[in-house]
């Protein structure tokens, strides 16, 4: 089986897992066997996902190209959903809340499913992309994005819970959600920071300038500033609840724009 086939199976497994999770959450109580089983399923799928990424790496070596599977949009989406999967598993283990997983799984599924619109073949790397800094850059950025995605899901739930009293009983405790909003950003922010730093190091090696204000760089910096505002508001000004949740939503908007929207702006870096 090739990694591309494996990824399509993984994609649909995430969907199935989301359905199983939904059933488990509706039909049973917290900490039931069914729910643990659903979590186990998620972990297994995630491991297969990990394996598929590794397999693609091996395949690229077999084709004589030999590079980390992180360079085109297809590969980055596969990796992004991998990061989300990891984030969900960690949040589930630490905070024992299933609903974040329940909401996050379709996100991972959609990210993966959208790869079917893209060219999945392994192409050789043009010279500018042949850099270990690039690998470190992509990995850390996406781990950061995954943290922000988890925070975003929790923030939305928090806002819904505050906004619609009738839904509150069905959602996790607001204190817990608020904690998840904050903690996932606390984990994601250093990752994004390292991502920006390694990206700058790469640019310095490839183009001779660590920062050239191209739209992608600029937008990642804007994202960084938004989350920095979040942390200051939270740690130094003691903001909590609705306002920080709103900041988390804004921040994730910036993340999405950095990732997808920037392509619509004029004047992108062309990779030599």
């Amino acid at each position: 089986m090739t990694s591309i086939e494996l990824i399509t199976y993984v994609t649909f497994s995430y969907l199935i897992c989301a359905v199983v999770y939904l059933l488990a959450c509706i039909s049973t109580e917290q900490e039931s066997g069914f729910r643990s089983g659903a979590l186990g399923l998620l972990i297994i799928i995630w491991c297969v996902h990990t394996f598929a990424i590794g397999l693609r790496w091996v395949e690229s070596y077999q084709m004589g190209i030999g590079r980390a599977p992180l360079s085109n949009l297809y590969e980055s989406l596969v990796f992004f959903s991998w990061c989300i999967g990891l984030g969900l598993i960690l949040v589930r283990m630490k905070f024992r809340t299933d609903i974040v997983v329940l909401i996050g799984l379709p996100v991972a599924f959609i990210a993966l499913a959208s790869t079917s619109l893209l060219d999945p073949t392994i192409k050789p790397l043009i010279p500018a992309l042949q850099s270990n800094w690039l690998v470190a850059h992509v990995v850390t950025c996406f781990l950061g994005y995954a943290g922000f995605a988890v925070s975003f899901v929790a923030a939305c739930l928090y806002l819904v819970s505050r906004g619609f009293n009738s839904l509150e009983p069905y959602l996790p405790n607001q204190r817990l959600l608020d904690e998840i909003v904050y903690k996932s950003i606390l984990a994601g922010f250093p990752m994004l920071t390292i991502g920006i730093i390694t990206g700058a190091a790469w640019a310095d090696y490839a183009w001779g300038s660590y920062w050239s204000w191209d739209p992608k760089e600029t937008w990642s910096l804007i994202t960084w500033m938004v989350y920095s505002m979040f942390l200051h508001a939270r740690l130094a000004r003691n903001w909590k609840g609705r306002r920080t949740a709103a900041l988390s939503v804004v921040g994730f908007g910036a993340v999405l724009f950095t990732y997808f929207g920037v392509n619509y702006l004029p004047g992108l870096h062309s990779y030599f």
Binding site: T218, M229, H232, A233, R237
Partner: peptide, 24 residues
């Protein structure tokens, strides 16, 4: 004050956005 920090960061963010819209 941290309030100043937040305001300056906001200004910088808005300026940076402008810079990605206006061709440089």
């Amino acid at each position: 004050s941290v309030r100043t920090t937040i305001v300056i960061l906001c200004c910088l963010a808005i300026a940076s956005i402008l810079g990605t819209i206006i061709p440089q």
